[in-house]
Computed example of a mutant assay.
Amino acid sequence: MSEHLDTVNPSKGVKAAGVAAYHHGDLRAALIQAATALVRERGIDGFSLREAARRAGVSPAAPQHHFGDARGLLTALATEGFLMLGDALAAADSDATDRDGRIRAQGRAYVAFALDHPAEFDTMWRCARIDTGDAAYVAAAGRAFGLLKAAVAGTHFEDGELPAASHHTAPDPKAIACWSLVHGLARLALDGALGPAEAARGAIDGMLEPVLDCLTV
């Protein structure tokens, strides 16, 4: 084969695409990084596997080795998003001392994650474009929701305690209500309904506590 699947094109290399240089073993991470930048610039509807490969400085066929197709790469991006969200929720949860404090802390962490990682956040919820049955995605999403559900219930959450298909089971109404409130606020900010990005952060700072008060009743 004249061109190895993972061959870097020096004229369209990683540095030119704004992605850190990588060794052969880092190809998967480099492709996810390129996909993240692409979705942030163009939105998920403007995503293409070929463009992600170009930005990562590899041949168009290279992503297929790791992800199969565009759906596979977007699923990996969504999974990374849920992993980061879960970590943010866990950190917020560990700093709180009671149920109400845990809900408020996780609510703040959720909105902050959405504003800081809009590409991942957008991709996480575009179920038509990702494989929601992927085991890694299911586990990461289940952990994030499990943390919120435990906070609402006032119980302790242990990583790994949820079955892989837990997010397909009957949802907890109170946890769904909490999720809906913070998700809606995050979505309004990302869609520009609260003004430009910096103004939106200021607006959220002023309204987040009153919104979170609704979650703890």
Rank of each mutant, 00 (worst) to 15 (best):
A140W: 03
H183V: 10
D116R: 14
R71M: 01
Y110E: 05
P163H: 05
L5K: 08
E198S: 13
T79A: 04
G206W: 06
A76K: 05
A135D: 11
A52Y: 06
D122K: 06
A62K: 07
L147G: 01
R71C: 01
Y22P: 06
A153V: 00
P196K: 14
R40P: 05
A78G: 15
G195D: 05
A17S: 15
Y137R: 14
F67L: 09
A141E: 02
S11N: 13
I103R: 04
S2D: 03
G101L: 08
W179H: 14
A139N: 08
V58M: 11
V19I: 15
T123H: 04
A96I: 04
A96L: 03
S2C: 02
T216Y: 07
P196T: 13
P63Y: 10
E120G: 05
R143L: 02
A128R: 04
R187Q: 07
A61L: 15
F82C: 08
A200V: 10
L27W: 07
G160C: 05
T169M: 11
T97K: 14
K12V: 12
A136C: 02
L89N: 08
A17I: 09
G101C: 15
A109W: 02
P63M: 10
L77K: 11
D100P: 08
Y110I: 00
G160K: 02
A88L: 00
D98L: 15
D93L: 13
M84S: 14
A96Y: 07
H66T: 05
A144D: 04
D100V: 10
L73V: 04
E209F: 01
D45V: 11
A53H: 15
R71D: 00
R129L: 05
L49R: 13
D87N: 04
S59G: 13
A203W: 09
A91Y: 00
P163E: 04
E209S: 01
G206I: 03
H156L: 09
S180C: 08
A119H: 06
A35G: 12
E161V: 03
Q106P: 12
I130W: 08
L89M: 11
L181R: 06
L148F: 09
A144G: 09
T7N: 00
G25W: 01
I32G: 07
D159Q: 06
R201I: 12
M207E: 00
G86A: 06
L212G: 06
R28N: 12
D205T: 12
V19S: 11
G25C: 01
S11A: 08
A200K: 12
R40V: 04
P171A: 08
S94H: 15
A136P: 00
D131T: 07
A112G: 13
A151P: 05
L5G: 04
L148C: 09
L27R: 15
R55T: 12
A139G: 05
A128C: 01
A17N: 12
A151Q: 08
A112F: 14
D95Q: 06
F145K: 08
A20Q: 11
A56T: 13
E3D: 09
L77M: 08
A70N: 02
P210L: 00
T75E: 05
S180L: 10
T155G: 00
C178L: 02
E209P: 00
L49E: 13
G43H: 05
A119R: 12
P171T: 04
Q33G: 14
A199T: 11
R71Q: 01
